[in-house]
Design a protein around this nucleic acid. Structure first.
Lengths: 246, 246
DNA sequence: CCCAATCCTTGACCCAGATCAACCGGACCC
DNA sequence: GGGTCCGGTTGATCTGGGTCAAGGATTGGG
């Protein structure tokens, strides 16, 4: 939501410019990061981390979408965050993972071994500051989502989610926010339901309703056109920022 | 939930030992903190910060309980965090406040002027680390609460809230968690409803139901005895940690 | 081509929790 | 004493979204 300084330099040879750890890093630090990093790919549906596992890396999403999920013993689940490209994963200074992380689409991660990363962080205050900033962003986003979960109707929830995806998509493509937006849903109906605290049937029904009312247009099941973002935002009951980073 | 090192030294003459910024601070730093700090009191019900206001301080709650609240244009509100004594308020490096903060009971705050605090933070990496740690705790708590909001029934929500208050109370009184717990509810039924994404009628009914079923005992409207914490935790559908710090 | 597996849609019905409304009881104040 | 708040309880009713169930569309494999 509050995307600060995008890095002008690349993190080593990462195919994207991380918004994460390398902003403002100088050449020495980037070299150090380079030395402790490696790439991993995950197929859609694969788990990346299980809640409670010992985490031995932190990193950023390079491409694809991952989800953070909480689960109850009886199987009820709630998605508590979406990780989009450039989002950071992991908790420097923490032993275990707090939630399940899974690849929603095929995912490429740029990982840093945790110990050396923490050591680099000790020596490099601006990395710690950057992480604090990112964590505050995520906290804002999580709290915004609490309002969605606690007080919004099903229709408003769907509209909120669509608005977030549209907005986030806009940050990755040049041009910024316009009235008309086109994007592909990166989530199944079930994943959307998990995110919104709904059932997949309700998600489906509300998407159909938004379509019938001309708020969105659908081509196939995933390809969405929003003819007028302002109308969508109204449906979301929300003229505030609405960005959820995960 | 993950209360790390409690400060052995006091933050200047604060009447409580902050768990917040002064853990591990040495004498020099405490002196600096002392120089930029001041106390403020707020009466129950009073606003402390309005969403969007420019914040010129950060600080900790010394006594009393404050709440963080999100509001929609049409008046629906969702509490997104509870601030209990020793909890930190404010967002170093951020201009504006993201939510309304209000005193739920009478509150005493120990405030630090923001600019000098940020400067001290620049020079003192362990303060930045401490803040990162606290922010990660809050993020965990917020995400845990998303599960409560999105997937739990009204009864489970009430039980979860009672468990959190009981647990948090226990961290402030010696002895730690036992089976039997006694505490006072620091929230009105309405505030509980705001926190849980329910109406106050539902809160009242579910509390009555828990009482009828012997999960809790009530003396007056606020004084609660939990004869067996394990039973309460079962009702919360939750054998995990469940601590929400705010 | 058929078959099976996914993912999605739609319909019929039901129930948890919202809504509307009446009332209780203690604190405070004339 | 008698108001009148204010917070809380309880009842009656309504409804949004859950649940159960039956297909439809697309994909991939034999």
């Amino acid at each position: 939501m509050n995307a600060p300084i995008l890095s002008q330099s690349r993190c080593g040879d990462c195919p994207i410019r991380h918004r994460a750890v390398c902003a403002r890093c100088n050449a020495d630090e980037l070299e150090e990061l380079d030395a402790i990093k490696y790439y991993r790919t995950y197929e859609a549906g694969q788990p990346i981390i299980w809640s409670g596992d010992v985490m031995n890396f932190v990193g950023s999403v390079v491409s694809g979408i991952a989800s953070l999920t909480q689960t109850m013993e009886d199987g009820r689940t709630q998605m508590v965050g979406l990780l989009l490209p450039s989002d950071f994963v992991g908790r420097p200074g923490r032993e275990g993972a707090a939630y399940d992380v899974a690849a929603t689409t095929d995912v490429v991660m740029c990982c840093f071994r945790k110990k050396p990363f923490e050591e680099l962080m000790e020596r490099t205050p601006h990395i710690a500051h950057r992480l604090l900033e990112m964590t505050l962003d995520e906290l804002d986003a999580a709290r915004e989502w609490m309002l969605v979960l606690g007080r919004k109707t099903a229709r408003e929830k769907i509209a909120s989610l669509l608005a977030i995806i549209a907005r986030r998509d806009a940050t990755l493509t040049p041009g910024g926010a316009t009235n008309r937006m086109v994007f592909d849903l990166p989530l199944t109906r079930e994943a959307m339901a998990d995110y919104l605290g709904l059932t997949l049937e309700t998600v489906s029904r509300q998407i159909s309703a938004l379509k019938k009312d001309g708020i969105i247009e659908l081509e196939g099941k995933r390809h969405v056109t929003v003819p007028d973002m302002r109308r969508l935002m109204e449906e979301a009951g929300d003229d505030s920022d609405g960005g959820f980073l995960g």
